[in-house]
Amino acid sequence: MTFDPSIIRAFTPAGTLRASINLGNPILANRDASGAPSGVSVDLARAFAEQLGVELELVEFDAAGKSVQAVSEERADFGFFAIDPLRGKTIAFTEPYVLIEGYYMVRDASPIRCNADVDQPQHRVTVGKGSAYDLYLTRELKHAQIVRAPTSPTVVQTFLEQNLEVAAGVKQQLEADADQAPGLRLLDERFMVIRQAMGVPISRGTAAANALNRFVEEMKASGFVAEALTRHGVVGASIAPRGGPELA
C-alpha cells in the first residue's frame, strides 16, 4: 500500500507512530524470552509502520481499558481492540482481523451447567476490568453481579481468591489457567465472539480510519495474519472474513 502524505501526518502528530499494545491479552500480545513485546498485534504494528515509512513506538499496557484510554486520549495513535459500541464513541474501528471466543469457567462441583444458568442473583461473575467481555456482560447480565479483576490475566486468580461462582474471559486464557488449577471446567458454549480489530482516534478523520481499514484487509488477504497466528502458536482464533464498505 502507498499512503498520501496527509494520512501519514494524521497518524504521526508526535513525529513517531505510537502503537497502543495491550499485554493483558496474551493471545495477541505478550513478552518473548528477552522481555520484549511480541505477538500478532506487535507484528501488525510493525508492518503498518513499515508501510507508512515511519518510526514505530510501542506503548505498552497491562489491561484493555488502559490501552483504549490511551488511544481515546490520543496518547497513542492507534491500537488493537475488541470492537465494542462504548469504545466506538472515541475510536474508529477497522473490520476485525481475528475472531476469539469468550467463555465462562466454573468449579467442577458447581451446579452451573450451561450459559443460561449464569445470570442469577446469587452468582458473581469475574471479568477483567475494561475488557471486551466486561463491557458486553455489563450490558447483557440482568441479575448476576459482576466483580472486576484488575486485568484479564488476573481473572482466575480473583475468582479463586474470592471464592466467586463464575470466571469469564478468552477461552484460551481460561484453559491455560485451568491447567494450573485443577478442579475447574469451562462451560460447553461460548457466550460471545470477540471481534479483534485495529482502531484510530475518531478525531484523526475518516480518511485515516479508512486507510487503517484497508491495511487490515490487505493483511488478512495476503496471509500475513494467518502466518502471524501460526508463528506465535496461537490456537483457537480464526481469521475474520472480509469486511464491509469503507466509512463515508
Rank of each mutant, 00 (worst) to 15 (best):
M1R: 09
I8L: 10
I8G: 06
P13M: 12
T16N: 15
T16Y: 13
R18S: 11
A19D: 13
I21H: 08
I21M: 08
P26H: 08
L28D: 12
L28I: 13
R31Y: 09
D32H: 10
S34E: 15
G35W: 11
G39Y: 09
S41H: 09
V42G: 09
V42W: 11
D43E: 05
L44K: 04
R46E: 13
A47E: 14
A49W: 09
A49Q: 10
E50I: 09
L52F: 11
G53S: 10
V54D: 08
E55D: 12
E55C: 01
L56I: 04
E57W: 02
L58P: 05
E60N: 12
F61P: 01
D62R: 14
A64W: 14
G65A: 15
K66D: 15
V68S: 07
V68N: 07
S72I: 01
E73C: 09
A76K: 14
D77E: 15
P85W: 02
P85M: 01
A92W: 02
E95K: 01
E95L: 00
Y97P: 00
L99R: 01
L99T: 01
E101F: 08
Y104M: 06
Y104N: 06
R107N: 08
S110M: 08
P111R: 04
C114H: 14
C114D: 15
D117E: 05
R124D: 04
R124Y: 06
R124S: 05
V125F: 03
T126E: 07
G130F: 07
A132T: 12
T138R: 15
R139P: 01
R139L: 10
R139M: 08
L141Q: 06
L141F: 05
K142A: 03
A144R: 00
Q145Y: 00
Q145S: 02
Q145I: 00
T151A: 14
S152I: 04
S152N: 12
Q157H: 10
E161V: 04
Q162I: 06
L164V: 01
V166Q: 03
A168E: 02
A168M: 01
G169D: 08
E175V: 05
A178M: 06
D179G: 15
A181Y: 14
A181N: 15
A181E: 11
P182L: 05
L184I: 11
R185S: 08
D188F: 09
E189K: 12
E189V: 03
M192K: 08
V193D: 10
V193W: 03
I194T: 04
I194W: 01
R195L: 01
Q196T: 01
Q196Y: 07
A197M: 00
P201N: 09
A207H: 07
A208P: 07
A209C: 09
N213R: 10
V216Q: 02
V216I: 08
V216G: 03
V216E: 03
E218V: 04
K220A: 11
E227Q: 14
A228Y: 15
T230D: 15
T230A: 15
H232P: 14
V235T: 14
A237R: 03
A237L: 02
A240P: 08
A240Q: 07
G243L: 04
G244D: 07
L247E: 07
